[in-house]
Design a protein around this nucleic acid. Structure first.
Length: 918
RNA sequence: GCGGAUAUGGUGUAAUUGGUAGCCACGACAGACUUAGGAUCUGUUGCCUCACGGCGUGGGGGUUCGAGUCCCUUUAUCCGCACCA
């Protein structure tokens, strides 16, 4: 009987579905473990072989934990709102819900074939009203709260209103868009709309008129993490800066907590570093500079207050609100020309030309508060309006950008720190002795910085301040296929829906593009207003809204009363292991931490951080194959001979190439153009060229998991994906090599059944050697799983089989099958039952290794003498190292090399003699 | 420019964490069984050399009895951030 995966795998998948083998419930008697995958966006292209990599790893870990006695929550769902379905809808008129449903079914079919242990009863879809009710609910909560910085916590907005009514802004320390000051009287005299206007400055979900990333091609605004190099991440369309009124989430309120929280997470250092950079904390000083002939002061932010004696000019951003006021009559024309030019340049150009120096003198002067000198104020786009105060004090001697600017405009460069050669470049390092700096002169930079923080405060010039690069997240999209905002408008004032009115369902429309007036598609919806006729918000929520709390919903997916019940949350708490791509570092992984912290502040969840341990699987790249057409003919020349001809390189479908050898018949049938192809072969074969590229349809290098399952089985696919290399490393998919893993499973099968289907397993006692092999394997595999080193654990199974040498003893095979079950569940389930069990291998007991089998016997070790002699001898581990030394020295073999001399030194490491020095 | 990661046979990789470099596979070569093989099994396979032996973990240097592993330096590739004051 042959190993027939085609028969075995569907049979067990069916059985698992019927028996609900993977259903999981709260069970206080057992320890819990929560393993989560990043849920997929169901795209029309279906899964390729790279998508399941992380899912397979997490599935192995889930199954392993289950065998170890944990109650494992391992759910799956779909991130179903999104751009591609909507773009498709605009082109075809087909409703995104229909496309999404179709794609989801296809995904499910593909996932099922791989044999995952998901509890599908807990499936969530972000586009399901019963699900997005809770996305809208969280939004309403954010709308109804502000962030109290003193208490480091979100609090109800009513508490803030009460404080305003009592004392105005006096004593209020709240996260806000701009710092406001008013008295209780002023507050109480405001109209309802005016009060709301003020509150928008504090709400955690708020509407503001800000500079946003506007993508004209997509017709929507985008968050910072959705833009890269001035292009939209989805589609690669140009993005411009535009002032618009948009909904935002005040994620900046949580900047410090998100930064601090990283320290206690088991995430990779590189991922933590990306988040730290994205938050971008910097400690500096706010300093106010007097302006000549103006009562107002110019506020700047600097991290180098120590260099203040070297300030020779000031620079403000072209968008700075004081620019027109600072511009003198003589400079008006030049400044306006500069602003006009700066506006014309796209964000992309501006970023590409960072070396270009441009700017304009405003005509005004500021006064250096320490030297009393008058210094010119310039405007330049190298100063960003969005960071700090949009104004800087320029220290050309110690900042390379200021240096370039000073050189360009012929401004003075005064060194204040010793070091470097300021004729050639600025000296930016934060080390050295201070010079030309009055009372700082002679000090070290490291002493001068804290000294100046004090001095600035003492003189009333400003104060120490912490700045973050993190921006509030733009939360509205001018799109259809997303969660509607539970918001309606009276005049221009936003009002929340009552919780009881949720979910506010997406209305049906027929045309999915923006209106002629440029309004979002929801403007086309009939009766898109509340009972009183007040219109609802026309934008919808962004993609990250639905994925920000889905891990909580899995804990209690059918609850209609709460996002997650207290009972379920208290049990499952947080995700113990999260597996997914690093591309979500500054998007989803930031937003869901924010979202979770907010719910934590409100007492809805019991853990501040959502994901305790996170593993980033690497990307699977494609491995493309090429054929070489002789130019102007229909002849194709094999790789080794192509230098003799003038050839054209053509991508060929990797599925008709094996081990880089082209299947000639399949090639002829592949495309009509090649039906009459002729070949110039080498050794009777056509050898293709290859290259590592992104896996994509246009490169014909997409390998479909169904294809692998069809030809080798799910168990082979699972093991081969793990065998390919370390989980976290990016690597190309190469179907060559899959035979090795497949052969392993066939050999395992052979230990149970011979060719004629005769059952071979015996009750015979295992030998010492066999037991050693088994226990060595258990130890190795267990350790490797714990370290997510699945490639080496697969190798360990292969070594085990090599060493076992056709052993068909139950004593060995039964533990082995359980050990292998997380990797190859179908065949192991089959073999486990063949051993006489009637329950699932998922409920077996994980085999423990016994140390005695590993340590009882003697072991081999090497000895080298002066790096020359190498010989082996077996010793008992329990022997005293000293006696081993004596023994080795006295051995004739060793003596021959020592040649009668007394060794100077015998080096023993962990009871092993490593070297003898004569 | 700043930050992070990686570099080992023809290929994917491994290395008890400072201790015989190349485990486990793929591929290749040879053989066995076969009508046949893209099945199965056995053997060989880092490089140079008939061999003895020598060389070998991107390059150069260092620490050490001993370095793929630690330190310095350099090159290449990938990733993240990018006028962040």
């Amino acid at each position: 009987m042959e190993y027939s995966f085609k028969e075995i795998e569907p049979r067990w998948q069916e059985r698992w579905r019927e028996d609900k083998t993977y259903r999981v419930e709260v069970d206080a008697s057992r320890p819990k473990f929560y393993v989560l995958d990043m849920f997929p966006y169901p795209s029309g292209a279906g899964l390729h072989v790279g998508h399941p990599l992380g899912y397979i790893a997490s599935d192995i870990y889930s199954r392993y934990k289950r065998l170890k006695g944990f109650n494992v929550l391992h759910p799956m769902g779909y991130d179903a709102f999104g751009l591609p379905a909507e773009q498709y809808a605009i082109q075809t008129g087909q409703h995104p819900a229909v496309t999404t449903e179709k794609n989801t079914a296809r995904y499910r079919e593909q996932l099922d074939k791989i044999g995952f242990s998901f509890d599908w009863d807990r499936e969530v879809r972000t586009c399901d009203p019963a699900y997005y009710k809770w996305t809208q609910w969280a939004f309403l909560k954010m709308f109804a709260h502000y962030y109290d910085r003193a208490a480091q916590q979100a609090k109800p907005i009513e508490e803030l209103v009460a404080r305003f009514e009592q004392n105005g802004t006096e004593g209020v320390d709240a996260a806000s868009t701009v710092e406001l000051h008013f008295t209780a009287e002023e507050w109480n005299n405001k109209s309802e709309a005016e009060k709301e206007q003020v509150l928008q400055n504090y709400r955690l979900a708020f509407r503001a008129d800000t500079m946003v990333n506007w993508c004209p091609k997509l017709g929507t605004v985008l968050a910072n993490d959705e833009v890269k190099d001035g292009l939209s991440v989805r589609g690669g369309h140009p993005v411009e800066q535009k002032r618009m009124k948009q909904w935002l989430l005040r994620v900046t309120a949580y900047a410090q907590r998100m930064l601090d929280g990283l320290d206690n997470l088991e995430w990779s250092d590189s991922l933590k570093e990306i988040q730290r950079n994205w938050i971008g904390r910097s400690v500096g000083a706010q300093v106010f500079f007097d302006i000549v002939g103006n009562d107002k002061k110019l506020e700047i932010f600097t991290t180098r207050p120590d260099t203040i004696f070297g300030v020779t000019f000031m620079v403000i951003a072209p968008e700075h609100e004081m620019l027109s006021e600072l511009t003198t009559a003589e400079q008006k024309e030049a400044v306006e020309a500069y602003i006009a030019e700066a506006k014309k340049r796209s964000e992309r150009e501006r970023m590409a030309e960072t070396k270009r120096v441009s700017g304009v003198f405003t005509g005004s002067y500021a006064i250096n508060p320490f030297t009393g000198r008058e210094i010119p104020i310039y405007a330049s786009d190298y100063v960003l309006s969005g960071y700090g105060t949009g104004a800087i004090m320029a220290v050309p001697a110690h900042d390379s950008r200021d240096w370039a600017f000073a050189r360009h405009f012929g401004l003075e460069i005064t060194p204040v720190v010793e070091g470097g050669n300021i004729e050639e470049s600025s000296y930016d390092a934060k080390e050295g002795k201070m010079i030309n700096s009055d009372f700082l002169t002679g000090m070290d930079v490291k002493e001068a910085i804290p000294m100046m923080f004090q001095e600035v405060e003492k003189r009333g010039l400003g104060k120490k301040l912490i700045n973050y690069r993190l921006r509030d997240a733009i939360f509205s999209r001018q799109r259809y296929w997303g969660e509607p905002f539970p918001i309606y408008y009276k005049e221009d004032t936003a009002y929340p829906l009552a919780e009881e009115q949720l979910p506010l369902e997406l209305p049906p429309i027929a045309n999915f593009g923006p209106t002629e007036q440029g309004e979002p598609p929801l403007a086309r919806a009939e009766g898109w207003c509340n009972e009183e006729g007040y219109p609802f918000e026309l934008s919808t929520m962004p993609g990250f809204a639905g994925s920000s709390a889905y891990f909580l919903r899995y804990m209690d997916p059918k609850n209609n009363e709460a996002l997650v019940s207290r009972e379920a949350n208290d049990y499952w708490r947080q995700v113990d292991l999260y597996v997914g791509g690093i591309e979500h570092a500054t998007g989803h992984l930031m937003y869901s931490r924010f979202w979770n912290m907010f719910l934590y502040d409100l007492g809805y969840v019991c853990e501040e951080e959502p994901f305790r341990k996170l593993v980033n699987q690497g990307m699977i790249q494609g491995r493309s194959n090429f054929v070489y057409r002789v130019v102007g003919t229909n002849k194709f020349v094999s790789l080794g001979l192509k230098e003799q001809y003038e050839t054209q390189e053509i991508h060929v479908d990797v599925n008709i190439v094996k081990n880089d050898i082209l299947d000639l018949e399949a090639f002829k049938q592949w495309m009509p153009d090649f039906a009459n192809a002729e070949f110039i072969l080498e050794d009777g074969k056509y050898i293709c060229g290859w290259a590592i590229e992104k896996m994509s349809k246009s490169m014909y290098n997409v390998v479909n998991p169904d294809y692998i399952v069809e030809n080798y089985g799910a168990d082979t696919l699972r093991m081969y994906e793990m065998f390919l290399g370390p989980l976290e490393q990016s690597k190309p998919w190469d179907t060559n090599g899959i035979d090795g893993v497949h052969k392993f499973l066939k050999r395992l099968w052979r230990l149970f059944y011979d060719r004629d289907g005769k059952y071979l397993v015996t009750e015979e006692q295992a030998s010492e050697k066999e037991l050693r092999t088994l226990h060595k394997t258990i130890k190795k595999v267990t350790e490797d799983i714990e370290h997510f080193s699945f490639n080496t654990s697969v190798a360990a199974f292969m070594i085990c089989l090599n060493e076992l040498d056709d052993c068909s003893k139950r004593e060995i095979l039964e533990p082995l099958v359980v050990l292998l079950a997380p990797f190859a569940p179908h065949i192991c389930e089959e073999l486990y039952h063949a051993l006489g069990h009637t329950t699932s291998v998922c409920d077996a007991t994980y085999p423990a290794f016994e140390e005695k089998y590993l340590t009882l016997s003697t072991f081999e070790y090497p000895v080298s003498i002066n790096g020359k002699l190498r010989f082996k001898k077996e010793y008992d581990l329990n022997l005293d190292p000293a006696s081993i030394q004596a023994d080795v020295v006295n051995q004739p073999e060793a003596q021959k090399w020592i040649e009668g001399k007394t060794p100077k030194k015998v080096i023993v490491v962990k009871g092993k003699i490593i070297n003898i020095v004569i």
